[in-house]
């Protein structure tokens, strides 16, 4: 069984690396790290600080720590938003491709259980994206440590935060893919959830004031727990990245969105497997 999942994982990974966009993402990751190296080699930290206009607010803090926080934020926040955006685009075709009439027949006619196909796609599709996330954050952390002498470990916590969000969206896309077998629909709905529904649900308290009534409150709160809590995790990412400068105690942060999002991945995948097992091909 493990070997069949491994074969399916390899196949899915092979499809990922056959896409130009995946290499584009890897190229961007490498470019970001090269830009950081270039900035550190060309400019002195004293020269960078006035440009980023951070020193005046943090007179008491070591200038190297300020610069480190700046670079960490400049990498992690765009990576979180851009990374999720690009990965939705990349992975949305995986399941519809394999479920396509004429392709799925090759798989279902073999001694493979249907859940193995879903798991294989999930694992294989995740590998390349996870590698990029780890490479960028770890690379940034090492460069900042090397050039600025700041080895703040809490920054590495951005890796699991981004991965949890990505995996949740991937599981959701698999569910949509199984339901509709259409990559465009899966992609568009995921974008709507990430860019429209996410911010609304994150700020649902404000909307509840305007949308008077218990029904609205109940609906928005329910939707908040149904869909990925990506914007709550984005806020968490920002706090983790700037925790050193803003003296935030990481232990006191609210990690419930991370656990809910993590749990959702299993529920979405479970639902996808359930629907897939029931379908006729």
């Amino acid at each position: 069984m493990q070997s069949r999942i491994l074969t399916l994982t390899k196949l899915s990974f092979k499809e990922m690396i056959s896409k130009k966009i995946v290499w584009g993402i890897t190229g961007i990751t490498i470019l970001i790290l090269l830009v950081i190296i270039l900035v550190f080699n060309v400019f002195d930290v004293e020269e960078i600080l006035p440009v980023i206009n951070m020193k005046k607010n943090h007179q008491q803090t070591n200038i190297y720590d300020i610069a480190a926080t700046f670079f960490r934020t400049a990498v992690s926040v765009p990576m979180y938003i851009g990374g999720i955006f690009l990965s939705i685009f990349t992975i949305s075709t995986l399941i519809p491709t394999i479920l396509e009439k004429g392709t799925i027949d090759f798989f279902l006619s073999r001694p493979i259980k249907r859940y193995e196909i879903i798991l294989g796609e999930f694992l294989g599709g995740s590998l390349m994206v996870l590698a990029n996330i780890i490479f960028l954050i770890l690379g940034t952390w090492i460069l900042i440590g090397f050039y600025l002498g700041n080895w703040e470990v809490s920054f590495l916590f951005v890796i699991p935060l981004t991965i949890v969000t990505f995996l949740d969206y991937f599981a959701l896309i698999i569910l949509f893919g199984v339901l509709w077998q259409n990559s465009i629909s899966a992609m568009m709905i995921s974008y709507i959830i990430f860019f429209v529904l996410g911010p609304i649900l994150e700020n649902r308290d404000v909307f509840i004031i305007f949308l008077d009534g218990k029904a609205w409150e109940y609906t928005l709160n329910t939707l908040y727990y149904i869909f990925p809590q990506s914007h709550s995790i984005l806020q968490l990412t920002t706090r983790v990245t700037t925790s050193e400068l803003r003296q935030i105690n990481l232990a006191e942060l609210n990690y419930l969105p991370v656990f809910v999002t993590f749990l959702q991945s299993f529920i979405y995948l479970g639902l996808a497997i359930f629907v897939f097992r029931k379908k006729d091909y």
């Binding site: 196949l11 092979k14 499809e15 491709t97 396509e100 009439k101 004429g102 392709t103 027949d105 090759f106 006619s109 073999r110 001694p111």
Partner: peptide
């Protein structure tokens, strides 16, 4: 039992 079966689908699409 599918280990013993070979199948060529109609209008198949390879990866």
């Amino acid at each position: 039992i599918k280990e013993k079966i070979g199948y060529l689908p109609e209008n198949h699409k390879f990866l």
